[in-house]
């Protein structure tokens, strides 16, 4: 690139002197003034202020979600199609024997409900994370990132806001499932499942953020569907118990077992039945921490700008 010759290579030395846009920068860089000379120095934030910020971010997301009826409906349609069409068709084909946490034979609809709950969260987490990464120079992410709170906190708050929305979706789904006689053994199951949903939602959100930061090809949602959501969903215990998978192929069994989605589903399944799947809890918590830390480290707004338009 050639620059046109600047008519005034060293422009207006006199114009600067004493004028309000000061060009003198002699002391800049090492001009750290004693903090006493800086105005209104308030160092850091109190825990209460962190709570206010988190609450504000989550509250806004929930409010926006409730205003977007179409988004709400479309988020519900997907699992309901699975429940009413897929499960109804497959209940004859797939028998599910008694496996923990179930204490009796269960209908196939009952079996896949935790998997569908996790699927709602997986879709939602991927969707909101993708927009966090690809809209980072746009309005809402920029407004968020210009907040003085630490960036890790802002990103985590935003992830939790996405989790809150996915939890609302899951409960809306559960209301409809309840009309279909799919319910936990006691109503306490609805409460017990909440912590599991929060942890699973956070894991999917963090994973989505990490993947979209690292892999440029995931720029659109179709890519995420094909390369993340479908493989994770099908190679898991969402649709069929793992002992059945083991019968058909040991290698697939190991893939399913290594899949974080399987553990999120099992965590939700057990919690819905007021039990704790300790191994799944440990795996989910572990993956969540790793994804979260990596996602925050990988989040670099300058990278996106450079990759997409180079200017």
């Amino acid at each position: 690139m050639t620059l046109p010759p600047a008519p005034h290579p060293n422009p207006l030395p006199d114009a600067n002197r004493g004028f309000p846009v000061c060009a003198s920068d002699a002391e800049v860089g090492n001009s750290r003034l004693p903090s006493g000379e800086r105005e209104n120095v308030r160092d850091g934030f109190t825990a209460r202020q962190y709570a206010i910020c988190l609450h504000g971010v989550v509250w806004r997301e929930a409010l926006r979600f409730l205003h977007q009826r179409e988004r709400f409906v479309s988020a519900l349609v997907r699992p309901l199609v699975w429940l009413f069409i897929f499960a109804a068709g497959f209940r004859q084909v797939l028998g599910v024997s008694i496996i923990p946490p179930y204490e009796t034979y269960v209908l196939y609809e009952v079996y896949i409900t935790p998997g569908l709950m996790a699927m709602i969260q997986l879709f939602n987490g991927m969707q909101s994370s993708l927009s966090m990464v690809y809209d980072r120079e746009m309005g809402n992410m920029r407004t968020l990132l210009v907040s003085p709170f630490p960036r890790w906190f802002l990103l985590a708050a935003k992830l939790l806001a996405g989790v809150a929305v996915s939890v609302l979706q899951v409960y809306a789904y559960l209301v409809i499932a309840w009309l279909w006689d799919i319910e936990p053994p006691t109503p306490a199951g609805y409460v017990a499942v909440l912590p599991a949903l929060i942890l699973a939602g956070l894991m999917f959100g963090a994973l989505g953020m990490l993947l979209s930061s690292l892999i440029r090809q995931l720029e659109n949602f179709a890519g995420v569907m094909n390369f993340v959501i479908f493989p994770m969903f099908f190679a898991s215990s969402a649709l069929y118990p793992l002992w059945r998978v083991k019968e058909s192929g040991p290698w697939l069994y190991w893939v399913c077992l290594a899949n974080p989605f399987t553990h999120a589903v099992e965590l939700i399944r057990f919690a819905f039945h007021q039990k704790i799947a300790w191994d799944s809890l440990a795996v989910t918590a572990g993956f969540t921490s790793v994804f979260l830390i990596a996602a925050i480290l990988a989040y670099d707004p300058a990278k996106g700008m450079f990759m997409r338009k180079g200017g």
Partner: peptide, 12 residues
């Protein structure tokens, strides 16, 4: 506006 205030730790 209230959302923005929250982003600066100002609430209620």
């Amino acid at each position: 506006l209230v959302y923005h205030a929250a982003l600066h730790g100002v609430g209620g």
